[in-house]
Amino acid sequence: MNAAAWLKRATKSALSFGEAPRIESPLQRFWSDFSESRLALIGLMLLTMIILIAIFAPLISPQNPYDLSQLDIMDSKLAPGEKSGAGHTHLLGTDDQGRDMLSAIFYGLRISLGVGIASTVFALAIGLFFGMIAAYFSGWVDTLIMRVVDIQLSFPAILIALILLAVLGQGADKIIVALITVQWAYYARTVRASALVEKQKEYIEAAKVLALSKTRILFCHMLPNCLPPLIVVATVQVAHAIALESTLSFLGLGLPITEPSLGLLISNGFTYLMSGKYWISFYPGLALLLTIMSINLVADQLRDVLNPRLKK
């Protein structure tokens, strides 16, 4: 796929030889590279829609699924499309407590995306810090940090998260802590690798000759140049974090029932799956799947666009 995209671009530029050179801003070039893949554009559109739904969930949901006064136990387990006693049509049916599934999914998306993004941002900051320090100072600092990273990465993320949640207990803050712990090592390793390359370049030498402070060299000069690979890893990791959170919530170790993420909705519907009431867990699962897949599609294209080896 990479090679094919490169070939396409190469032939395009070869064919346009002789035309007046067009001057593009970096952002324009980024966008024209990104929009080359139709699949990535579909992913981006889907993702934008999902994020908008999550942000505006209280405004667009037919019902506030956690306002108990709006729920009627008589409306429980209605099939998709059925009308409730009060005359509302439940497009995706209702769950065992008479909660409208569509509204529950909108609110669940909010929690799942929120947890995924929050944990990624914190893990990114921590990983960035340790990765830069390891690369810049090298020696025993580097060895110590990378040893910890190696050991941690030799265990699967789910096992580490499980141990942590078994210790910390339930709660949104706790699952974010667990997800940060699982993720920071990926960033540290990625940042270290690109920072080691950047460290050898002339502009860092120049900055040193100018006697700039270490902090300034690290964070104003090196950091911006280490970002592209990090953006790719971060996008993929948001998807991983969301999947991991929903898995842990499904196992009953993630979020408490008062803050149902998609995983918890699925777990809740699992009990009724056997009796053929598929919609209680199927639709939240579909929402989860679309979210993860749209992020992955965007990440795949970002990787191609930001990869310097594929640049002309």
């Binding site: 796929m1 998807a239 999947a243 929903s246 898995t247 499904f250 196992l251 995983g263 699925i266 699992f270 799956l273 056997m274 053929g276 598929y278 867990s281 199927f282 699962g285 989860l288 799947l289 993860i292 897949m293 992955n296 795949d300």
Partner: peptide
């Protein structure tokens, strides 16, 4: 085949299990 493998990467294990039960058992 590659599209299949991308889907395989994206699907959370527990959801696949659920769909399998839904389809083949129920």
């Amino acid at each position: 085949i590659m599209a299949l493998s991308i889907i395989g990467f994206s699907l959370p294990t527990f959801w696949v299990g659920l769909v399998l039960i839904m389809f083949f058992s129920v």
